[in-house]
Amino acid sequence: MQDPNELFQFETDTRLQDVQASVLVVALGGFIDAGHTQKLLAEHLLEAHESTVVASFDVDQLLDYRGRRPVMVFDRNHWASYADPSLLLHRVVDREGVPFLLLAGPEPDYQWARMTEAVIRLIRALGVTLTVTVHGIPMAVPHTRPLGVTCHGTNADLVPDNDPTFGSVQVPGSFASLLEYRLGEVGLDALGFAVHVPHYLGQTEFADAAVLGLERLRNATGLDLDATSLAVAAGRGRAEITRQMEESEEVAAVVHALERQYDTYLEGLRKRSLLATDLSDLPTADEIGAEFEAFLKDVTDDGPGDAGGATGRGV
């Protein structure tokens, strides 16, 4: 393995002792992020709190540019701009002045083993004692009921009273998942929250999921994080979804069917997790997808004006 220390460089002359923090939030995307949950949360943390860049990573060694081409703007007769990708470690300060770290940017395409070791070295150098991830996963649940969360961690003490949604399953790997796994191997604490996003809203910016992720992040770390603008965006998103439902009987009928099945399962399981039992009777994504095709097109075509709500951009 090449030297992991050569993957990053510090962007400040401040002594490492002065930029230390006990919490690291990792937001590097992955195989899936339903509702753009992680993206919305990371953007909100940087917009709502004071932050500085501590370190940057050499993306030329980590990214497949042809696999996900950066955006460029052509203006009449010349190239006007280039969306230069960046993978940065930020030092963010909560409302009480307590610092934490946020690693944000595109998920590495290459050198996962080396990148994992680089992050672990930064964690040790900067005094991090808990690493946290938040993202969204699509579920056959209605948006009108409380969202669920699948919790996972490097030891059982980090997820007390956890009622698992899943048993043992095989899933495509992600860098964040591998990082959590490696942290557990070396005895470092890591915790993750996968928010259950209604799969018919999985391609939109569903801010309700980001709000719940922020709440779980606050509870797990004790950080005093501002949720105001994210909550406002979530309210706007719910209003837009309601408007769309009122304009389409088919859409409303599908949501109401999900509500009835959700309530039936919840009652039958005596308030245990809805998805702790067989989902074979729930409608599939293909069945609901046909009903919601026009709905999602209308929602995503509204543009980015209400970023964070259901009117956000699709992927």
Results as ranks from 00 to 15, higher is better:
residue 112 W to Q: 00
residue 148 G to N: 06
residue 126 L to Y: 09
residue 118 A to H: 01
residue 149 V to G: 06
residue 102 L to D: 03
residue 161 D to W: 07
residue 133 T to C: 13
residue 140 A to C: 10
residue 141 V to D: 02
residue 140 A to L: 04
residue 122 L to K: 13
residue 92 V to E: 08
residue 163 D to G: 09
residue 142 P to K: 07
residue 131 T to R: 01
residue 151 C to W: 07
residue 128 V to I: 13
residue 101 L to N: 03
residue 114 R to C: 06
residue 141 V to W: 01
residue 97 G to T: 15
residue 134 V to N: 04
residue 91 R to D: 05
residue 162 N to T: 08
residue 93 V to L: 12
residue 133 T to W: 08
residue 83 A to Q: 13
residue 158 L to K: 14
residue 90 H to R: 06
residue 98 V to T: 15
residue 120 I to E: 01
residue 151 C to P: 03
residue 160 P to K: 07
residue 100 F to S: 03
residue 107 E to H: 02
residue 144 T to V: 13
residue 131 T to I: 09
residue 90 H to P: 03
residue 157 D to M: 13
residue 104 A to P: 06
residue 96 E to S: 15
residue 125 A to I: 02
residue 152 H to W: 05
residue 85 P to V: 00
residue 107 E to A: 02
residue 85 P to H: 08
residue 159 V to W: 04
residue 122 L to W: 14
residue 107 E to G: 02
residue 146 P to Q: 12
residue 153 G to D: 08
residue 160 P to Y: 09
residue 145 R to L: 07
residue 108 P to E: 01
residue 85 P to G: 05
residue 101 L to R: 02
residue 118 A to N: 05
residue 152 H to P: 02
residue 141 V to R: 04
residue 87 L to W: 12
residue 120 I to P: 00
residue 144 T to A: 13
residue 83 A to M: 10
residue 117 E to I: 11
residue 101 L to P: 07
residue 116 T to Y: 08
residue 94 D to N: 15
residue 117 E to Q: 14
residue 109 D to E: 03
residue 93 V to G: 08
residue 109 D to P: 01
residue 112 W to H: 04
residue 98 V to P: 00
residue 97 G to H: 15
residue 102 L to T: 03
residue 102 L to G: 04
residue 138 P to H: 06
residue 159 V to G: 09
residue 104 A to I: 00
residue 98 V to I: 15
residue 104 A to C: 06
residue 132 V to Y: 12
residue 88 L to N: 11
residue 142 P to I: 05
residue 154 T to S: 11
residue 95 R to P: 14
residue 153 G to P: 09
residue 151 C to L: 09
residue 151 C to N: 07
residue 150 T to N: 02
residue 150 T to P: 00
residue 157 D to N: 15
residue 147 L to T: 01
residue 128 V to K: 05
residue 147 L to S: 06
residue 131 T to V: 14
residue 152 H to S: 09
residue 113 A to H: 10
residue 158 L to Q: 13
residue 143 H to I: 08
residue 116 T to E: 13
residue 122 L to N: 12
residue 110 Y to Q: 01
residue 83 A to G: 07
